[in-house]
Structure formats: C-alpha cells, structure tokens
Design a protein around this nucleic acid. Structure first.
Length: 463
RNA sequence: UCCUCGAUAGCUCAAUGGUGGAGCAACCGGCUGUUAACCGGUAGGUUGUAGGUUCGAGUCCUACUCGGGGAGCCA
C-alpha cells in the first residue's frame, strides 16, 4: 500500500494506475445510493479533488454515507480509470476510516458563496476552490519574486518593521509604544513624553523599507526588500489594506530607464512563472473569476509596456473626447479615472507614466534638468490601476537638502540618509511593488481583502 | 473621511403600508455510476440595532452599526 498525495496521482498517473494506494483528506462532497456512493476529497496537496467510490461491502458503509462535508478520512483502495466523464480516474475504496467527523453546521456548502460572506469566515475560506487557488498562487508568486531577484544576484535585505523616522512621507503611520496610554507620562506642554517610552523616542510601524534599503544598495549594488508594510490610512477601497506586503528593489549605477526595464522584466517573469507553475489554479481563475485573464496575461507577455511621460499623458487625455469628473490639467496628480482611461482605453496594456511634476511627488525623487519634473514612474495596469510606484533617487546632496527643506522635513532626522550622498553616493533607482495588487492582477480577484489571508482594514481586524 | 446602494431562515434571494415565502443547506426516508446528483417529507424567523409615524411597519421617517460600489490617499 503506497501512501500518496492527490498531486502525485495527477502528475504521475501511470505510476499509480491499477495500484493499491492510501490517501487521506477532507470530504468536499458525498453522493450516495442504496448500495454505493461517491466521495470527493481534497487532500490539500493539489487544487483538484479525487473521487472515491465505495459500496456496501465496507463494514461502515452506512456511516460513510452520512459523512459531513469537511470530515477527515483515510482511504485505502485501488486507483482505477473512471467510467465517468468528469474525472480520468478514481479510487475504489477497500477501507475508509473516519478520522474526524465534521459538525453538521459546517458553514461551507456545496454551492457558490459570495466573497462577502466568505470574508466573515476567513478561517474556513481557504477550503473553498477560489481561496485555495488564490493562496496557493500567492505562495508560488512569493517564491517567484525571490527567485527572480536571487537569480540575478540581488541581495535580500530585511529592513526594520519598527521605524523611528516619523515622516517617511508615504502615509499615515501606526504608533508603536510600550507605554500604558492611560498612564502615559506627559511633558511640560502636556504631550505624551515618548522619551520615557521603550525606544526613548516616538516610533511607528514602517510605511516603506525604501530609505533603509537604499543604504544597503550603496553596499551590495542590487538589493530588494520583501516584507510587510503598514499604513494607518482610513482608506475604504477594494485595493487598500492597512497591512500589506511590498517588494522594493533598489539598483545602483542605474537610472529611471533601467528601473522601468527591471520592473517590466520582473512583471513578465512573474506572470510566466504563475502560468507555468500553477496551471490548474490559473485555469480556474480564467474560467470562474475573470474570463479575459489569459488573453490579458498573454497580451502582456508578448508586448512591450508603453512608456509615456506625465506631460505626454496629460496631452493625450486632453485630446480625448471624454467628460472626466476632474478635467486634466498639467500640474495636478492623475486621478484614478485618468489612470484607468490611459491603461484600459487608450493603450489596453501596462503603461509606465514617468517624469511627474515635482510638487506632487516625494522629496527623494531626482530632479530633472527642466527643474519642474522629477524622475518618477508609476506602472498602471488594466483592472488594478497603480501597481508600482518608483523613481530615480536624488543623489546630489545639495539638491536633496533643498527638496527636503521645501517639503518641510527636518534634515537632522535623515542624517544617515544624507550621509549616503556624501560617501560615494551614485545614481540609483528603485520602486515599490504592491504584492497583493500583483496577486489581484494575476487572479482577476477584484478585492484586496480576498487575496490576504486575514485582511486588516479600517474597522476590521477579526481573526 | 466623502458620495451612493444595501442589511429578511445557516446561505442566496422574494414579499402593493394589511396573516413573512422559495431554492439550496440541515434532519428523516427512497434510489445500482453520481458530478452543485436526483425524488419525497420534516423542521427552521423578535425582518441589523434603537427610536418615531400609523388602527396596523419587513415596507415610511431619524440615528447608529456593519457590508457592497465609487472617490480621496497610495502599493
């Protein structure tokens, strides 16, 4: 009797056909007749289920027929080719052992549930087809990202989760404190005295690893971070979460064009990797979640990403005969409706928009020679919108200091960041890729809450 | 945070201001190759919460809570 997984049976069917096998897994569905029945089980190793046929020759036939969904069982039997149309093979059971009987009020039924309902039972939803596919893909894509960078010699840097820089500028921050807030020590002006706190200063959860990873970029040349990020923004959209994962590569001796080349190569690599290594899951998404998925992904793999400057994009949008809620005008940030129009209507594929006005972008972005724009780039993709935001960094100390001053930042807080410009600081660039947004893009899932195991959003931290 | 729509059985949804229903799930029974199996039966409800209008409220009004969609912020 060979102990096998469902994945092994599907991938190496010839090895197991007409052999005795032993399987264990969870019941997805049971169908019975007077003298025989069928069980489909999923053993966790594979997206697909396997059908088990059983009949009254089993001494526990009656009990088996009453198995509830999600009960755990062990089956011994023979793998045989199946006369049924929907599966190539099945297991003819000789013994079925009930390992754990699931209660009858198991909330998942043999029918389609809404994603909204499944979010209320996030501890059970990975047992559904959709979420099993999403989270196996998420694991595979995380590995693909590491593989992409590691194969190219990048060093993976673990940047800190707790940060003392209180103005990274990327968003609202969650405070980290060991103080009892009810008894917090106050200073003379009545504000909480964080010098008495654990770190002796005010600290927060990171909103980006970028500033830290730039320091390692100046040592290892090509580096990346991949870790959790926290934003305390009261964002209530399908593509924002308070806790999410971000990939942030940083490359030295490189400019904005190199940065976009890297982003494009990485995106294509990830897509190809997902198609090659999760074919069942991807086929499922294409069939049940987004019927245009494969066409969309194939189109991306076989074409070059569009590259336009912000100024060109504004001109193109102004020429279109469309009534935008917010008219396009040079100097304002592109609204979601403009970004979507660019990527979904005009180009119908991923678009890099670069060289934004300096006033709407972060202080660390490199000032262009026109003195009006900075070497920033966003990658916009159909369906998701902004998936990457990046820039060439300002490596010239005097200009960086000037920009910080204009942005109202205290240069002393960034002394180590400025040091990089004094000690062999060269041109360098990098970007942040929202991991969940990649998963959304690869699966067609339209809500970020459905690609995070236990999503944390404003007013929601169950589980 | 703003705009908008919604909340009725375990799930998905019906119900003109006038006795709250269906399908699926559950439970009981039937069925010799099923595929979200099928057939028959049983049980299941303080209509999100708190007020108000009315002879009478699931239905109308107010507030709150939670959720969907859109916007801002961004990845």
């Amino acid at each position: 009797m060979q102990l096998v997984t469902v994945k092994e049976i599907y991938r190496e069917t010839d090895r197991f056909l007409n052999q005795k096998v032993e399987l264990s897994g969870w019941v997805r569905t049971v169908r019975t007749s007077k003298t025989f029945g069928f069980i489909e089980i999923n053993d966790g190793s594979f997206f697909e289920t396997i059908q088990v046929v059983f009949d009254e020759s089993l001494d526990n036939f009656i009990e088996i027929g009453k198995l509830t969904i999600s009960s755990a069982i062990r089956i011994q039997g023979e793998l045989v080719s199946s006369p049924g149309a929907k599966q190539p093979f099945e297991v003819k059971a000789e013994t079925i052992e009930i390992l754990a009987l699931s209660a009858a009020d198991y909330p998942l039924q043999k029918k389609r549930h809404t994603f909204e309902y499944l979010r209320t039972i996030a501890h059970l939803r990975p047992r559904t087809n959709t979420f099993a596919a999403v989270f196996r893909l998420r694991s595979i894509v995380a590995y693909a990202i590491h593989k992409f960078f590691q194969d190219r010699g990048y060093v993976y840097v673990h940047t800190p989760i707790i940060t003392g820089s209180d103005a990274e500028g990327a968003g609202e921050m969650f405070r980290v404190t060991a103080l009892d807030m009810a008894l917090a020590p106050k200073d003379d002006s009545g504000h909480i005295d964080f010098s008495k706190d654990f770190f002796g200063r005010e600290t927060s959860l990171t909103v980006s690893g970028q500033l830290n990873v730039e320091t390692y970029c100046m040592a290892f040349r090509n580096v990346y971070t991949f870790g959790p990020t926290f934003r305390a923004e009261n964002s209530n959209t399908a593509r924002h979460a308070a806790e999410f994962w971000m990939i942030e590569p940083e490359i030295a001796f490189a400019d904005l064009s190199d940065n976009m080349n890297l982003a494009e190569e990485m995106m294509k690599y990830i897509i190809q990797y997902a198609l090659d290594n999760a074919p069942e899951e991807m086929a499922f998404f294409n069939k049940f979640v987004d019927k245009t998925l494969f066409d969309r992904l194939e189109n991306i793999l076989s074409s070059e990403f569009v590259r336009v400057t912000y100024t060109e994009a504004v001109e193109m949008l102004q020429k279109e005969d469309v009534n935008f809620e917010y008219p396009v005008r040079w100097g304002m940030d592109l609204q979601t409706e403009h970004e979507r129009y660019l990527t979904e209507k005009i180009f119908k594929k991923p678009v890099f928009v670069s060289d934004y006005p300096k006033d709407i972008k972060a202080f660390y972005m490199r000032l262009n020679d026109d003195n009006k724009t900075v070497a920033a780039m966003d990658l916009l993709v159909p369906g998701v919108g902004e998936i990457i935001g990046g820039s060439q960094r300002e490596e010239r100390l005097d200009l960086l200091q000037k920009r910080m001053q204009e942005s109202g930042l205290n240069a002393e807080d960034y002394w180590w960041y400025l040091d990089l410009r004094r000690y062999g600081g060269v041109k360098h660039a990098g970007y942040g890729l929202g991991f969940e947004r990649v998963i959304m893009y690869l699966t067609g899932m339209s809500n970020i809450r459905d690609v995070v195991s236990f999503p944390r959003t404003a007013n929601s931290c169950e589980f």
